[in-house]
């Protein structure tokens, strides 16, 4: 009964909407520190952020993801996010099953923090996002980050863990594209229902789209 009540009212939606809204602000702050990002036209900066925000949040959240119990444990056990918390925010297993699989795979790469940060920057500076105008400039910035990442792995990532590591990291970016699409599909359903879209934040509505407007 409690599950049904939780589900129908999406009891976790307000909290997760706030968490995602806060995270989007952090992604924007991070993007502004990427060399060259601020030199892009404002419209391209906006296109890149809107299309990559959810992917960077999924990447960033891997730090708190734990293989022990397949949850995002942020600090003490009071701040532990389980799959059930995300379903009670309106998402279903079509997203969560591949998302957990993605988190497990990423965790097992045991990335250095430098590699993790570079991967998020490379994810943001993807020239193939729909609506990008100056794809050549975005591509040149991404290429530079990719070269830095490959050099870092060669010089600083010793031992067996580094074998094919760059290729595995790029594969994670591909996985994120399909997670992004599934998230968008489920978000669209959610945002069509006024009783749920009213619980989202202005920034979430702006970044993920506000069907109502």
């Amino acid at each position: 009964a409690s599950m049904n009540i939780g589900f129908s009212q999406l009891s976790m939606l307000p909290h997760l909407a706030d968490l995602v809204s806060y995270s989007i602000q952090k992604v924007i702050g991070f993007a502004k520190m990427i060399p060259g990002f601020r030199d892009l036209a404002a419209d391209d900066q906006i296109v890149l952020l809107k299309s990559s925000a959810i992917e960077v949040i999924m990447l960033r959240s891997n730090q708190s993801f734990t293989l022990e119990d397949m949850t995002w444990t942020c600090g003490s056990d009071d701040f532990k996010y389980r799959i059930s918390d995300v379903t009670q925010a309106g998402h279903n297993m079509d997203l969560l099953e591949p998302l957990v699989k993605f988190q497990v795979g990423l965790k097992k790469l045991n990335l250095h923090e430098e590699e993790h940060v570079l991967l998020m920057a490379i994810c943001i500076l993807s020239p193939d996002r729909p609506g990008v105008q100056d794809t050549a400039l975005v591509e040149s910035l991404q290429d530079r980050l990719s070269e830095i990442l490959q050099s870092y792995i060669r010089c600083r990532h010793p031992g067996p863990g580094s074998r094919l590591l760059y290729a595995k990291m790029i594969q994670k970016l591909t996985d994120l594209r399909s997670l992004n699409e599934e998230h968008s599909r489920q978000y669209r359903c959610l945002s069509f229902q006024p009783q749920h879209s009213m619980q989202l934040t202005p920034l979430v509505l702006e970044v993920f789209g506000n069907e109502i407007s």
Binding site: Q25, I28, G29, A42, K50, P202, L203, E206, V207
Partner: peptide
């Protein structure tokens, strides 16, 4: 209309992060 679009994103991009 275009200008009004993404007003929050533009603000967060332009504001000076401490």
């Amino acid at each position: 209309k275009k200008k009004e679009n993404n007003a929050l994103l533009r603000y967060l991009l332009d504001k000076d992060d401490v």
